[in-house]
Design a protein around this nucleic acid. Sequence first.
DNA 1: TTAATGTAAATCGTGTGCGATATAAATGAC
DNA 2: GTCATTTATATCGCACACGATTTACATTAA
Lengths: 145, 145
Amino acid sequence: MEKPTKLEQQLCFEVYKASSNFSKMYAKALEPFNLTFPQYLVLLVLWEQDGLLTKNIGERLGLGTGTLNPIINRMIEQGRLTKQQSQTDKRAFTISLTDKARSEHAGVEQAVLEKLICCNFMGVDAIELMKNLKELNASFKSMNL
Amino acid sequence: MEKPTKLEQQLCFEVYKASSNFSKMYAKALEPFNLTFPQYLVLLVLWEQDGLLTKNIGERLGLGTGTLNPIINRMIEQGRLTKQQSQTDKRAFTISLTDKARSEHAGVEQAVLEKLICCNFMGVDAIELMKNLKELNASFKSMNL
DNA sequence: TTAATGTAAATCGTGTGCGATATAAATGAC
DNA sequence: GTCATTTATATCGCACACGATTTACATTAA
């Protein structure tokens, strides 16, 4: 790692901007569905495996209860999620997709995919970038900050 | 770009996590100074060139007035910044560092640098990653979403 | 069994981040 | 010079994001 000096040279800033850019792009793609980017992430997790505990979703997304709980509550109000107290552990709550959320799966994925294709990231080696980012995130995970 | 399917495969999610990880890491390094990561970004800009207009700082960081103004106001309350109405353009305000903010420059940089060195990102090619991220961000800039 | 410890959610306070709107000042067209 | 448009900042409402605390329940140990 180089010694960071100016703003342009800082890795953290490039990551920060990239995250903000992605967030805005996804916001546009998801707007017709009345979905935010973090809400979409919750759906991605549940589309992959339904009926998870709040804790599981949080682990998957790297979000704490203070962030995730309001998001889930809003999605319940939207009629996308339901919450059921677990029988085996009364502290835990199972989060499930409603029919509405299940049925819009294909449409939302399609809209996001279209936006991605439309953008097309000229000259960006996405595979290489993914590889480096996964290494970076693994590094973060393996250190006790 | 590959067709994105599962959460792990999505570039946006890796970027999202990396940004969150960096933000937490910087938060720890900056905590002794009572600084947040975005506040640190404002300082980086002004340490490089003092006496900029709000607009210039926003352009540099990619932040709008709705985000930047509260940050600047908090930093004025902290005694780090001052705001002066421009003589040439009475709409514009010049943001300047106080002596306090100027004098803590070295200490803050040192604390951040130590944290970065301490982390050391095993196996991550930071140069390559920076290059790819800059290309990605340039792609975002050049498209009208 | 009870007491200590640990865990799952909920809640709270602070600080972004953004789009939309408001206001004042500068600029340009006529 | 007047008026419409543009520009710089301010404000507002909504939605994260996180650490800290609280509450309810579970688990373990004495």
